[in-house]
Design a protein around this nucleic acid. Structure first.
Lengths: 241, 241
DNA sequence: TAGAATACTGAACATGCGTTCAGTCGAGGA
DNA sequence: TCCTCGACTGAACGCATGTTCAGTATTCTA
């Protein structure tokens, strides 16, 4: 139960104070982190601090509204057509538009903190990855995997994780230039990514063989269907003999 | 300046209140994040809050001392022999020893926040990666790259970034069981990692070709030495000669 | 043994936080 | 016209934080 009405579909009628607060919060959270105080957000939105609590109940409620809004906008953005190849490229496209750039910043911060949005965000891109990987496998451009779901999650987490860490290690001078930092990241990592994805790293399969030998009992053999997933179930139980 | 004496080499004589405070801080920072208050640290160390400020000047000073200590211990740990293959495996080894486990937790938190330790930490492992990659290339087990330095940084950032993000997405029930979470991560990601590193993702080199065509002027050809970085110039020049 | 320096405490201070609340303003309905 | 209700403000509350400080205990030095 929030407090009062909910816009429910962020289409029109969005210059209300409530929406201004939400947008200001997304911008400031993205630029300065979630430690940003409600007073700073209120000032940025041109309202009083009390109004924020009046509308959103608490700072946590505001955070939740921001999460929902960002996720909804990103979904809409993707539905609108652009399937710009990799996830980074899609973020890059969003970050290049002044209007949607703050959403990217907020999403990245959210990934770093690992809230609910982070989970949904990643799940969303994992689903995308499963799709384009399956397409690629069907078309013969991507090699099949022993566990497609795990691989889709892996490349997604790997990609966004590298982006996050690179960001944390090389904080940009201008914390609002998300397009610039994405561009810098792609410049730094583009070549190794392309190399690794096309050639791999090793020259023979001894590493993979060793892993398969170690993970599976030596009775069951090679590349079968993806049996179970190794991904979503957090499974603290180890599976060694 | 700090305040008084500095142990300077954490060998012996390390049960002083100062060391107790430092160890308590490392443990609590690692388990609960850097937002942990000085009073909680003081209580955990069995001293008063004032003493922390007396010894370390400020909370930031304490943080810095922790950074230095953790980095020193990790260096010592690695110097002591074990080159346990991948960085994750080495962390896993450290996290399995009760004594050094808190250091791993602190280091991971530090990576997430991106302080000075994070930079040194990554640089350290990047240097390692350059070494074992060069060895592998020389031995013929690893394919050469067009930019070995970039690749070494890439695989390091990619690996730790994925670990961090996976951690943020699947926070463990017991926030002090770093060995358990590392094991969970390896279980989830081991197979896709092995697959990607041995086979790559794509079946042909069109992706890499496209990247090379895009990044380089069409005059210069093929695999040469790691010339310059590709593309932009904003690059807050960090590690180029 | 006398004195000085240091380790250490406990209370207080200043600040910023999220949140509460009494109350004002303005629009809409009876 | 009155009345109600939601938007909205500004001051205050309670709390936790990092930090300061006067004072006490302890240890070292001469």
């Amino acid at each position: 139960m929030r407090s009062v009405e909910e816009p429910a579909s962020g289409d029109t009628s969005d210059l209300t104070a409530r929406a201004r607060v939400r947008d200001a919060a997304i911008g400031l959270f993205g630029r300065n982190g979630f430690g940003t105080g409600v007073r700073a957000i209120a000032e940025d939105a041109g309202v009083s601090a009390g109004l924020i609590l009046h509308h959103f109940g608490s700072k946590e409620g505001l955070r939740q509204s921001c999460d929902e809004h960002v996720l909804r906008m990103i979904r809409e953005y993707k539905k609108k057509g652009v399937q710009a190849g990799s996830a980074e490229q899609m973020l890059m496209a969003m970050a290049s538009v002044e209007e949607s750039a703050p959403l990217v910043g907020y999403a990245l911060r959210s990934l770093q903190s690992g809230g609910n949005l982070a989970k949904s965000f990643i799940d969303h891109f994992v689903a995308d990855a499963e799709e384009w990987i399956a397409d690629g496998v069907a078309a013969g451009t991507i090699r099949p995997s022993r566990d497609e779901k795990a691989r889709a999650r892996f490349v997604t987490v790997q990609g966004f994780g590298a982006l996050m860490l690179d960001l944390a290690l090389n904080p940009p001078e201008d914390p609002s230039d998300f397009a610039g930092m994405l561009r810098g990241y792609i410049d730094r990592m583009g070549l190794p990514t392309a190399e690794l994805y096309t050639q791999g790293l090793m020259t023979d399969s001894s590493m993979l063989d060793a892993y398969l030998m170690y993970a599976d009992p030596p009775g069951s053999d090679g590349p079968g269907p993806p049996e179970q997933d190794a991904g979503s179930t957090d499974a603290p139980g180890d599976d060694k003999p």
